[in-house]
Design a binder for these strands. Structure first.
Lengths: 339, 339
DNA sequence: CTGAAAGCGCTTACAG
DNA sequence: CTGAAAGCGCTTACAG
């Protein structure tokens, strides 16, 4: 909390009014762009405002109007470029619509998420967009709804029963596309690298297992090597895989970050991705284009996903009675050099 | 702008007061944690608040108190993990101090930056932390100061005359450390890859050139290959370098992103960084640990830099009369496998 | 077309 | 220790 420099009194519409020789209602009307005011008058008002350096006090206006032009955005892991890209798309669309974003980073910490949500609520924001932290209770959407604040959930679903607006991707299909490609190249033993828990992992693993069934290939559970969904994790997972099952020459990764780690482990072992080992990532973050080698991956257009989440939220704000909305990004496989 | 669900009237301190059988002043005092109120009474008030689902209206309170607990954070390029990491450090420290962040992304667009600054001003934030977009006029700090809002500039300086709080790194020294290392390994012809413009490039190039002088090595201007400070740019720069000057076997890059692009171009050419070519990045973003190969780079602790910027801003808010503050991160060379 | 008045939900001296 | 009152800077019917 901070007060303004003492002694300094900011100009208000009353000051503008007195300079322009009108009432403060008139000033307010002009500022809000009402067409009740003749051009001559409104010009005079605007000039007066500029002259005395008047600054619109949005908080006061919003308090009076019981409205808000701020939207709370809660991100679980900003160090993952995927989420940063989602945020970029979201922020841009929101800014275009005249909204400002209150950004909070939970770092996958449920307690922090709770705290942050409470603060956002007290700020009186117009809506919330959230990438829920892992382990977020299914009750979250109901709870936020009960506050009367519009909500969109991004990336991670929250389990069966709850109904809420959601923007995400078809994770199972994405993995199936990657798997089909690898099978098409002749691979039969294909590993799945990375991920510990969460709905997204669940969906991606589903796609992984479904592919074996669809192609009548026997599935070996130990082809799944779990790890933190990070570069470190991907590196460790690939090291373990190479040690345990030398015959495996292909893998799809939980996400691009794990794939980068795996790429690095491959390099350590003197193996070249795309020639000695086929590796496919997931997300298509910007980094994949010029990794070494450029990463083949499943494109779910992170930035666009963020923008779509904004669209859903904006629609919900405008029309609270709307039926539940879902945006599910169609994945596409983008082939580069790694597999 | 959105209104709350119609018909729904949120509880106010007046409601709490009537339930708790006290005056609204008492409620306010309790909520603000005043010790004027006996425990028995404040317990009663808190219970009443919880019972009717009262939510503190921060905007109203702040309007009355002429204060704010929001800080505007303006980021120029959130797609660059370096800035995302700075943001994470900044946000965490600010949140710890009880502040919320209004986040705006300018995408290096000066017009957008101007717009965003105006909006932040109208929101009545307590302070601004900005990574200025390239080409930001030197007058920006003066202008923000004239609004009466505390400011900290991050990462990029704004030129000579202006005085403002700043958190950044010793860029020249960082490059010199990298260069000394390469020279120690026996290299004489060392390229500088990436960057187009801006103060950071200037400083890093200064360090680059100084090293040649210090070691009495002849400096070839065409060893500097400029490019966008991105992976694409780094890739293109390395391709050009490889084509033009086959004798060069070492380079320091403008930043880690360019280094990744260069790594990728090296891979394309069948060259291994760290054995056929020594490559050093700058920033030490998280991605460097497990790139292929792991990138040697100059560590300027992005997350900590963000946290330090928060510290400076918080100090400025508390004590507007403070003399100009600077935090300049000491770089350290971290050697991994690329060079 | 413009002005006087009430009110958004708080905080803060000031009495009592 | 608690209550009545004024006021933060706006907006919005309502008169005129």
């Amino acid at each position: 909390m901070s007060k303004k420099t003492p002694g300094f009194r900011a100009a208000t519409i009353l000051d503008v009014a007195s300079v322009a020789n009108v009432s403060k209602s008139t000033v307010s009307l002009v500022l809000r762009g009402s067409d009740l005011i003749p051009t001559e008058t409104s010009d005079r008002v605007r000039k007066a405002a500029a002259k005395i350096g008047y600054v619109y006090n949005r908080r006061a206006a919003e308090l009076r109007r019981q409205s808000s032009n701020a939207i709370g955005v809660v991100i679980s892991d900003l160090r993952n470029p995927f989420f940063a890209e989602v945020l970029v798309g979201l922020e841009r669309r929101l800014a275009e619509a005249g909204y400002t974003v209150f950004m909070a980073h939970t770092n996958e910490d449920l307690e922090r998420q709770q705290r942050v949500l409470t603060i956002l609520r007290e700020q009186g924001i117009a809506g919330i967009a959230i990438c829920p932290a892992l382990g977020t209770p299914i009750s979250l959407p109901r709870s936020v709804k009960s506050w009367g604040v519009p909500l969109v959930v991004m990336v991670r679903t929250l389990g069966g029963g709850a109904s809420y607006d959601f923007a995400g991707a078809d994770n199972s299909l994405g993995v199936r596309q990657a798997m089909d490609h690898l099978i098409g190249k002749g691979h039969r033993r294909i590993a799945f690298l990375g991920g510990i828990t969460g709905p997204v992992l669940q969906q991606r693993l589903d796609g992984y297992k479904e592919t074996f069934t669809a192609h009548r290939i026997r599935f070996h559970p130990d082809l799944i090597v779990t790890s933190q969904p990070t570069r470190e994790g991907g590196h460790a997972a690939m090291v373990r895989l190479l040690k345990a099952r030398k015959s495996v020459k292909a893998a799809v990764c939980y996400n691009d970050l794990t794939a980068f780690g795996a790429l690095s482990a491959l390099g350590d072992a003197g193996l070249r991705a795309g020639v000695d080992f086929d590796l496919i990532g997931f997300d298509n973050i910007l980094d994949t284009i010029h990794s070494n080698p450029p990463l083949s991956t499943v494109d779910i257009k992170p930035e666009q996903m963020g923008a779509e989440a904004a669209v859903l939220l904006l629609a919900r704000i405008k029309e609270p009675g709307l039926k539940v909305q879902r945006f599910i990004q169609e994945p596409t496989l983008v082939l580069r050099q790694s597999g």
